[in-house]
Amino acid sequence: MVRPESTQVASAQWLQQDNAWVLGIGGEWRGYRGALPDVPAALRQGEVRFDTAALRSWDAALASTLWQRLNALARPPVQLDLSGLPAGLREIVSLALSDAPTTDVPQPRVGRIAALGASTQAWWSEGRRSLTFMGEVLLSVGRLLRGKSGMRWGDLAWQIEQTGPRSLPIVALVSFLVGLIVAYMGAAQLQRFGAQNYIADLVTVGVVREVAALLVGIVLAGRVGAAFAAQIGSMRANEEVDALATMGVNPIDFLVLPRVLALLFVGPLLTAFAALVGMAVGWLVAVGIYGVTSLEYVYASAQSLTLPHVLVGLLKGTVYAVLVALSGCLQGMSAGRSAQAVGDATTAAVVQAIVWIVVAASVLTVVFQRLEW
């Protein structure tokens, strides 16, 4: 093999030996900012090796230059053999080449059947992950009932304070506005038949049974579910969840269970509060705009506000709140270990919570109607 002269001057040249191309590098390359020779035009395939026996010194400039020259060769049918480079230079070049973009490599086209199969498999995996997580939460509740849970009651109280009282302003605002819309639009239709006295029935049954619970669920999804996903996702990114497991603390007991129980307690209370706000708005519309007396409104509301309507509304609000907690904690526990992954988990938590709420609302409405509740 012909090697570059072992001199103090930086030198490099391409040599062909048998079926391989050899880049010989010699001399002092520390502080030298010259370029390596261009890749020979005949080098289209085969093996590329390096001879650095005459190389006396080098720095990052040589590594950068090598990467620029070899980037186009770091894919078949050319095979790079970096074993001839010094250890430090070999590690830098190998790392740089491993991150080289390969956008020019044509990607195989995926057929429609294969794409459908991949989507179905992803959907099935997501469903199994959700069911597994819910099973772990139920096991955690069982440990709590047996007195063997790692949950701290102080964490539960703190979560109740964060999700309950701090959610009252936004719940009141949304309930007021939506209740105003329901009462005004419903009263406008009833007025056409001279049935303004039924405004109380419409608002009371609609708000208490359906609207209040749905509003609370959506508000909690945007405010609390996103916060749960961001908090737990950040802990995963910082490896705090792994640290808890290493110390023998169950992350489900320590992180998930307090949040689920907090919304289990807070859900029906917020639903009752939202229903009261909606009924008060209905009173304002009926009395202030359509001339219904306060006594008539209160009496009609009391007559229409039966126990089944109240129980159905509170049950729905509780179910929606628990679904929000489960979706937020699920996405947080499944988040990746980067800032972008935490943001993706937060978005997915809100979307998943709303989808679950809509599905649960449809199922519960059909079930209760069949039961004539």
Rank of each mutant, 00 (worst) to 15 (best):
V355L: 14
E210N: 13
A272G: 15
V205I: 15
L270G: 05
A274D: 02
Q162G: 08
G248K: 05
L80G: 01
N250K: 10
A348D: 08
W356I: 00
T246C: 11
Q303V: 09
M247K: 10
G26P: 04
S327V: 06
A361Y: 01
G313V: 01
V9M: 08
A302H: 06
A272F: 15
L15C: 10
Q340I: 04
E372A: 14
V359G: 05
F265V: 12
A72Y: 09
V310C: 03
R128K: 15
R109Q: 13
I218E: 08
T246E: 05
A188F: 12
L284K: 02
A87T: 04
R3D: 08
I357A: 09
V342P: 13
R152A: 07
L66K: 00
S140I: 04
S6C: 06
I181G: 05
F193P: 06
V281N: 04
V319D: 01
L311K: 00
R56W: 14
H309W: 04
A114E: 15
M247D: 05
V211E: 10
L371V: 13
W283Q: 06
L215C: 11
W153N: 03
W373Q: 09
R129D: 14
P37R: 07
A188Y: 11
V110M: 13
V351E: 10
A41Q: 15
A195V: 10
A54E: 15
S94Y: 03
V224R: 08
V241Y: 11
R69Q: 07
F228D: 02
L131C: 06
L36V: 04
A96G: 04
P40G: 06
T120D: 00
L89T: 00
A87M: 02
N238P: 03
Q340F: 01
V350Q: 00
I218L: 14
M1S: 10
R128C: 12
L276S: 12
